[in-house]
Write a protein that binds this DNA or RNA. Structure first.
Lengths: 83, 83
DNA sequence: CTATCATGTGCTGTATACATTACATTAGGT
DNA sequence: ACCTAATGTAATGTATACAGCACATGATAG
């Protein structure tokens, strides 16, 4: 089945890339460090949904980095541009 | 009514402070820029819940700054300490 | 006193992040 | 061929972010 139509996801993440750069950490290992299930990590890498801010912080913490280094926000439909 | 028991919220934000540092921007104005309702901004400032990662990015964008500058994560109950 | 602006409160409904369980698939090792 | 580890898929249930609406409160102005 093809991708869902509509604008592309507004947030991309570097989770999979960071896992391999951190001693090939498994999804399960990252999940334990972040306090979620392996399923959640898999869904995030697959772009099925966006993490909560709390989980975003915990994932960044697992990689000893910041939220802005793990997640990248791309403005697609800006709610407001100028008053 | 007193606060709910248990550990303090894991994420604090500088939204109210940033609003006043940005020409005393009203909750309604910030809400419009972030694409949410005024009610949501009020709830965030009151600490009633945490924003989604998407909203966190949009609020940071409204202040021309990063997520990590608007929101501060304080580790209270680390999901894992050491294997 | 009345009107308006900014902020807070309370309720109800919907969308979605995440858990839970189970099963399929691919690669490596014996 | 068999076993295990790592990853993906699918279905269902729960918690919660956020919308939408109405109304209360405090400040300022006329």
């Amino acid at each position: 089945m093809p991708e869902a139509p509509g604008p592309p996801p507004a947030i991309r993440n570097q989770i999979r890339s960071l896992r391999f750069h951190h001693d090939e950490m498994t999804q399960d290992e990252l999940a334990k460090r972040a306090g979620v299930t392996r399923h959640t990590i898999m869904a995030l890498e697959a772009g099925k949904y966006f993490p909560s801010l709390l989980l975003a912080f915990r994932i960044a913490s697992a990689f000893h980095t910041t939220v802005d280094q793990v997640f990248e926000y791309t403005e697609i439909s800006a709610p407001i541009s100028s008053s």
